[in-house]
Simulated assay, not measured.
Amino acid sequence: FLTINDLKGNRKMEVFELMEGHYLVGNQGIYKVLKFLGEGSFGKVAKCTKLGSPECYAIKIVKGSWAGEKEFKMMKLIKDLHPDENHLIKMYEWFQFQNMTCIVYELLDKSLHDSLMNETQLVHLCFIRVIAQQLLKALKALKSIGVAHCDIKLDNIMFAELDSVNVKLIDFGLALKTKKLSTETEIQVPPFRAPEVILGLPLDESVDMWALGMVLACLYFGNYPFPSETEYETIRAMVQIFGLPEAESILKTESRRVKPSNTTSSP
């Protein structure tokens, strides 16, 4: 078992060596890891308690510093949007501890995936309507500061209060300023990926609106509306339902991608 002093002195400790019962020394206090809530390529999310306080927090523990600092900068923008009113996760602080970046968030309940998609009965339309209203408000707030979430999916929408159907949008690790979106950007997982992302077309905040539509369709039908094994299958299914886009709209899109030359011939 490592003490707090051991953790301060051991600069070679890796993120996956953290265990339940270990401590993280933050700027606003010392956090004790109670249990791990999830794990991904970025690192881990741990449920922690702050020493001297009864409150519990969710701390995202990111390997290295670049990804964690990028998410923190995005969360600083979002912090001014009144997270509770706009259904966005609340951040309390961030700090670097050894070779890890730690972001302290409010502890939420369950994700839409865990709480609803595992049920045998379909979600009632009245609940879907409430969830839609809350998430549309979240997207409107993000648009007001020129930010796209870029990773809206069932796992990234969590209940703050399950009984009152109060949801919040989480995980801004892939979020970007809308003006920085490009065809080179890798965003969205396949079931929620917008067609313009698949086709390499110009992107804006509407990619989030498409992903939200997929989320709501999943809740209503109890399954993904389009196959997602390959991008070809996804686009083929969309064409079968919506038809091919008009040639005129394709030409307009292509013309926006070709920048006119500003050079003039010298006399």
Results as ranks from 00 to 15, higher is better:
residue 7 L to P: 03
residue 8 K to T: 01
residue 10 N to Q: 11
residue 12 K to L: 14
residue 13 M to D: 07
residue 13 M to E: 11
residue 15 V to R: 09
residue 16 F to Q: 12
residue 19 M to N: 10
residue 20 E to P: 03
residue 21 G to D: 01
residue 22 H to P: 02
residue 22 H to Q: 03
residue 24 L to D: 04
residue 24 L to A: 03
residue 28 Q to M: 01
residue 29 G to V: 02
residue 30 I to P: 02
residue 31 Y to L: 01
residue 43 G to L: 12
residue 45 V to S: 13
residue 47 K to R: 15
residue 49 T to M: 15
residue 49 T to N: 15
residue 53 S to Y: 11
residue 54 P to W: 12
residue 54 P to N: 15
residue 57 Y to H: 08
residue 58 A to P: 07
residue 62 V to P: 04
residue 65 S to E: 14
residue 66 W to M: 14
residue 67 A to E: 13
residue 69 E to A: 08
residue 70 K to C: 07
residue 72 F to P: 01
residue 78 I to A: 06
residue 78 I to G: 05
residue 84 D to S: 14
residue 87 H to I: 06
residue 88 L to F: 05
residue 88 L to A: 05
residue 90 K to M: 05
residue 90 K to Q: 13
residue 90 K to G: 02
residue 91 M to L: 03
residue 92 Y to A: 02
residue 96 Q to I: 04
residue 98 Q to Y: 00
residue 99 N to H: 10
residue 100 M to T: 06
residue 102 C to W: 09
residue 105 Y to H: 11
residue 110 K to S: 10
residue 112 L to Y: 11
residue 116 L to W: 11
residue 120 T to N: 11
residue 125 L to E: 14
residue 125 L to N: 08
residue 128 I to V: 14
residue 129 R to Q: 10
residue 129 R to L: 04
residue 130 V to D: 12
residue 131 I to K: 05
residue 133 Q to R: 09
residue 137 K to V: 00
residue 137 K to M: 04
residue 140 K to T: 05
residue 141 A to G: 05
residue 143 K to V: 00
residue 143 K to R: 14
residue 145 I to E: 00
residue 145 I to A: 04
residue 147 V to C: 05
residue 150 C to H: 03
residue 152 I to C: 02
residue 154 L to G: 05
residue 155 D to P: 01
residue 157 I to R: 03
residue 157 I to M: 04
residue 158 M to Y: 00
residue 161 E to A: 01
residue 161 E to W: 02
residue 161 E to P: 00
residue 161 E to Q: 04
residue 161 E to V: 01
residue 162 L to I: 06
residue 162 L to D: 00
residue 162 L to Y: 07
residue 165 V to G: 00
residue 166 N to R: 04
residue 171 D to H: 06
residue 172 F to R: 00
residue 173 G to H: 07
residue 175 A to I: 05
residue 175 A to M: 03
residue 176 L to N: 01
residue 176 L to Y: 05
residue 178 T to S: 13
residue 178 T to C: 09
residue 179 K to H: 11
residue 180 K to S: 13
residue 180 K to Y: 12
residue 183 T to H: 03
residue 184 E to Q: 11
residue 185 T to E: 12
residue 186 E to L: 15
residue 188 Q to E: 13
residue 188 Q to R: 09
residue 194 A to S: 13
residue 196 E to L: 06
residue 198 I to T: 03
residue 200 G to F: 11
residue 201 L to S: 12
residue 201 L to C: 15
residue 201 L to F: 15
residue 203 L to F: 10
residue 204 D to K: 11
residue 204 D to G: 12
residue 205 E to A: 15
residue 206 S to C: 13
residue 211 A to L: 06
residue 212 L to V: 04
residue 212 L to F: 07
residue 218 C to V: 05
residue 220 Y to P: 01
residue 222 G to V: 04
residue 222 G to W: 04
residue 226 F to L: 13
residue 227 P to Q: 07
residue 231 E to M: 10
residue 232 Y to I: 11
residue 233 E to R: 08
residue 236 R to D: 14
residue 236 R to N: 14
residue 238 M to A: 08
residue 239 V to I: 15
residue 240 Q to K: 15
residue 242 F to C: 15
residue 242 F to L: 15
residue 243 G to Q: 12
residue 243 G to V: 10
residue 246 E to R: 11
residue 247 A to M: 09
residue 249 S to V: 10
residue 253 T to N: 06
residue 253 T to K: 02
residue 254 E to L: 15
residue 257 R to W: 06
residue 257 R to V: 12
residue 262 N to G: 13
residue 263 T to I: 14
residue 263 T to D: 10
residue 264 T to V: 14
residue 264 T to D: 00
residue 266 S to A: 09
